[in-house]
Nucleic acid binder design. Structure first.
Length: 123
DNA sequence: AATGTGACACAAT
DNA sequence: TATTGTGCCACAT
């Protein structure tokens, strides 16, 4: 019988879990975008859901979710207002060596970490 | 049940 | 290049 593989699962419930997994996989000092994660999950165009999922990450105690490494496709820290304090997002990024200028990630393209590219190795 | 909102992204203007 | 409108899907009221 088919035991559910972690990679292939249509349960919506796992969608959030999937987002957490990928977010957790973001290497230190790197960033990714909501759209990239959505695409990696096969939910292209549903990038807004990523934000919703991450919104609950704060409540997922026990597993640290580096949500601060997720920004929009423009490299802007759009979700900083959901941190407390909001400035902590930039602070954490800077602590990892990421430079922030005007709420934007410097060299975003260079620091961008594509989940699909990484996941395609094993998945 | 319907409507509005949201941590986005893309096309058109 | 910047703004605006539309699509997307889940959740709150």
């Amino acid at each position: 019988m088919m035991k559910r593989v972690s990679s292939i699962n249509d349960d919506k419930k796992d969608f959030y879990q999937r987002v957490f997994e990928i977010t957790r996989l973001i290497p230190k000092g790197r960033v990714t975008s909501y759209g990239a994660i959505a695409k990696a999950l096969g939910a292209t165009g549903s990038s807004r859901m990523i934000g919703w999922a991450l919104n609950g990450c704060s409540k997922e105690h026990g597993v640290p979710i580096p949500a601060h490494r997720v920004v929009n496709r423009n490299g802007v820290l759009t979700g900083k207002h959901h941190f407390n304090p909001p400035s902590s997002m930039q602070k954490q990024l800077e602590a990892e060596g990421i430079e922030i200028k005007d709420d934007k990630v410097v060299d975003f393209e260079k620091l961008f970490w594509d989940p699909i590219k990484e996941l395609s190795e094993d998945w």
